[in-house]
C-alpha cells in the first residue's frame, strides 16, 4: 500500500509540466507551437500555485494506492501492448479475462472455481467473436485463433 501525500502530487505534477514545457519549447516553428507553449506555461504556473499552497500548509491531501493489488494487471497491460498484436486479440484478451476473473476472485482457488471461470470466459469470448467478427465485421489481429474467420 502506497500512501500518497501532497509531496507526491507536487512531484508528479512538476514532472508532467516540465516534460511538456520542454517538448513545447524545443519545437522549431514558433507559430505552430504557440498554443502548446501557452498550455505548458499554464501547467507550469499551476504547479507554482500548488507549491505555494503546500508551503502555506493548507493542502492536506491524502490517499492510498494498493499497488500490490493492481500491479499484476499493469504487467498484463504492458505485455498486451508489447505482444497483443502478434499473439492475436482473441488469444491475448482471453488470457487477460481469465487472469482477472481468477486472480481477483474472492473465492477459493480450487479446480472447480477455475473451471467455472473458464466456462464464463469461453462464453463471453464467443459473444465477443459473434459481435465483432461476425456482426460488425471487424478484422482484428487473429494469430492462430479465428485467423481463418478473419481472412
Amino acid at each position: 500500500m502506497i500512501k500518497i501525500n501532497n509531496i507526491i502530487v507536487l512531484i508528479t505534477a512538476s514532472l508532467i509540466a516540465l516534460f511538456l514545457f520542454y517538448l513545447s519549447f524545443r519545437g522549431g516553428n514558433s507559430a505552430a507551437y504557440l498554443l502548446p507553449r501557452t498550455y505548458s506555461v499554464i501547467l507550469a504556473s499551476i504547479v507554482i500555485i500548488l507549491i505555494f499552497f503546500h508551503i502555506r500548509k493548507k493542502n492536506n491531501f491524502y490517499k492510498e494506492l494498493n499497488l500490490k493489488k493492481i500491479f499484476p494487471t499493469i504487467i498484463f497491460i504492458i505485455l498486451f501492448i508489447l505482444y497483443g498484436e502478434d499473439l492475436g486479440f482473441y488469444f491475448s484478451t482471453t488470457l487477460i479475462f481469465f487472469f482477472i476473473t481468477t486472480f481477483y476472485s474472492p473465492e477459493e482457488k480450487s479446480i472447480k472455481n477455475l473451471i467455472k471461470a473458464g466456462i464464463v470466459c469461453s462464453i463471453f469470448m464467443c459473444f465477443i467473436y459473434i459481435l465483432f467478427s461476425l456482426l460488425l465485421k471487424v478484422q482484428v489481429p487473429g494469430f492462430i485463433l479465428f485467423s481463418l474467420a478473419n481472412s
Binding site: F80, F89, I96, I100, T101, P106, F124, L131, F132, V138
Partner: peptide, 24 residues
C-alpha cells in the same frame, strides 16, 4: 461479481477501441 465486471470492461474496451479505425 466485480472481478467479472472488470474483465468484461477490459475486453470490450480493447475490441471497441480497435474496431473504430482497425488501429492497434
Amino acid at each position: 461479481p466485480v472481478h467479472y465486471m472488470a474483465g468484461i470492461i477490459v475486453v470490450l474496451s480493447i475490441f471497441g477501441t480497435y474496431s473504430v479505425q482497425n488501429s492497434f
